[in-house]
Amino acid sequence: MHSPLDAAAIGRHDPFMPHDHHDHDDPHALLPPEPALRVKALETILTQKGLIDPLALDAIIDTYETKIGPRNGARVVVRAWQDDAFRRALLEDATPVVADMGFFGRQGEHMVAVENTPQVHNMVVCTLCSCYPWPLLGLPPGWYKSDAYRARAVREPRAVLAEFGVHLPADQAVRVWDSTAEIRYLVIPQRPAGTQGLDTAALMDLVTRDSMIGTGLARTP
């Protein structure tokens, strides 16, 4: 099945991609080689041109270092554990449900929650880049962006899980979600046994970042 665009686009050229660059012709090669100096040079030029407000950069960094992180996702998971109507609404259409809790915005525009059960363990990767649900989990950890995780999570998820110390029973299937579009996935880990008496704060401490990516399980108290 061809896209309806195909016929119109035959012979078309993207003016911004006339040919691939050779690495030595790339504009980026004009910047200093050392990473910190490259970034500094670019920020300096853009600031001189009036295109960057350095205080806006500080505000962006502060947002992801101190305001948005996996505690947001943990709040959603615990509520799903505690409230079955919420859980069902979350699994049906997560985007408005988490937005009601104040979690929305960049890299979380379209959310899907997937639930682990004794039969199915879910795990999330982005093999093509590093897509990740920022409003619920913050920025991705280094290993999530690594070649090893991107390359291997789809082909040998159980071997990768073992490297995280997770060993699944043979009767539990693995579903690996490769985030190839703008849909962002949140894993709802299984609620550990023996947690009936715990309050929300205590439950949230059991919900690790990795358990919401699917490379970990919720902690047992």
């Binding site: 990473p35 970034v39 950069l57 960049r106």
Partner: peptide
Amino acid sequence: RALALTLAA
């Protein structure tokens, strides 16, 4: 800085 610069640009 690289992240923030990319988002701002």
